[in-house]
């Protein structure tokens, strides 16, 4: 994978506007943004309703994912282009999700909805109607996802990268500063995790920084290409953004997203937690 395989720009989107094999999907943190206007031809995926199991905390089942794609007229060979607000947080999450469920023909619109708007490009309210398909039920690629026990076993052994803001990492905040402060039982971070906020990988307009800048960012933070790496944040969407950078843009192997992230880890009983700005030792502490 490299940047040109996984990122497209506005010109690419406009050039493929009438291509029946290309489907644009908007995925936003604010799910109502689509209704106020979206890129012509784009369908909406609601990250809460469509991408979260309605009962337990988990991804939707492979069957439900196949039904979602079928409903939106997406086939196994369809090129899916994802974009969204908030610097593509949830679009990157959806990208990881599509890869996890084996849909490899997926791309991200660089800069997402914000750059599209800042460039003064057209948004429409017309909702496209696509003929339904019969998408085959996929198999989860478990190698792209980390779960709780794997993360606990990784402390002090595997590169852990916490992509939340420094105040969340240190335990001074429990959630991003623009969101209500709630969720996990304890503040802090997983001991030994380095802190490279997702925002350092993006420019003000939401586009990704150059490959050279990105490599410098992560190597300066002490990460080594090729070594097993687990990214996490609060609920797994910002870490999907960093997973996208490391695994898809830079092509690093062995990178996973821990989608349980801090809302799970910070509520576990009996696991080590580190408070403060230092990565800490495997035993945690720092209060």
């Amino acid at each position: 994978m490299s940047r040109t395989d996984v990122l497209v720009n506005a010109e690419w989107v406009l050039a493929h506007a009438s291509d029946p094999n290309v489907v644009l999907i908007e995925v936003d943190e604010d799910v109502s943004a689509y209704d106020t206007g979206h890129i012509a031809g784009a369908v909406r995926v609601d990250w809460r309703q469509d991408l979260q199991d309605p009962v337990r905390r988990d991804l939707v089942t492979p069957e439900a994912f196949a039904a979602l794609l079928s409903k939106n007229g997406i086939g196994p060979d369809t090129t899916v282009v994802l974009y969204g607000g908030n610097n593509n947080w949830f679009a990157a999450y959806a990208y990881w999700y599509f890869k996890l469920y084996g849909h490899d023909n997926v791309k991200l619109l660089d800069g997402g909805r914000k750059k599209w708007e800042l460039d003064g490009r057209e948004l429409v309210t017309e909702v496209p109607v696509r003929a339904a398909t019969d998408y085959p039920v996929p198999t989860e690629r478990v190698e792209l996802r980390s779960k709780r026990d794997e993360v606990i076993a990784a402390i002090g052994k595997v590169q852990l990268i916490d992509v939340r803001s420094p105040d969340e990492y240190s335990g001074r905040l429990l959630a991003p500063a623009h969101l209500p402060q709630e969720q996990s039982q304890r503040p802090g971070h997983i001991p030994t995790a380095s802190n490279v906020p997702w925002s350092k990988a993006a420019n003000d307009d939401g586009t990704f920084k150059s490959d050279a800048d990105l490599v410098e960012l992560y190597t300066t933070a002490g990460l080594t290409e090729g070594a097993p790496t687990i990214a996490y944040c609060r609920i797994g969407e910002r870490s999907a953004h960093t997973w996208f950078v490391l695994h898809e843009v830079l092509g690093w192997d062995n990178v996973t997203n821990y989608d349980g992230s801090w809302t799970e880890y910070g509520s576990l009983v009996g696991v080590p937690v580190q408070i403060g700005d230092a990565a800490g030792s495997p035993a945690g502490g720092g209060a």
């Binding site: 335990g171 001074r172 905040l173 429990l174 500063a177 503040p187 937690v273 945690g284 209060a287």
Partner: peptide, 12 residues
């Protein structure tokens, strides 16, 4: 292991 965080009460 993870006791009171003195800064938390005044943050957020």
């Amino acid at each position: 292991m993870c006791g009171a965080n003195p800064e938390r009460s005044q943050t957020g």
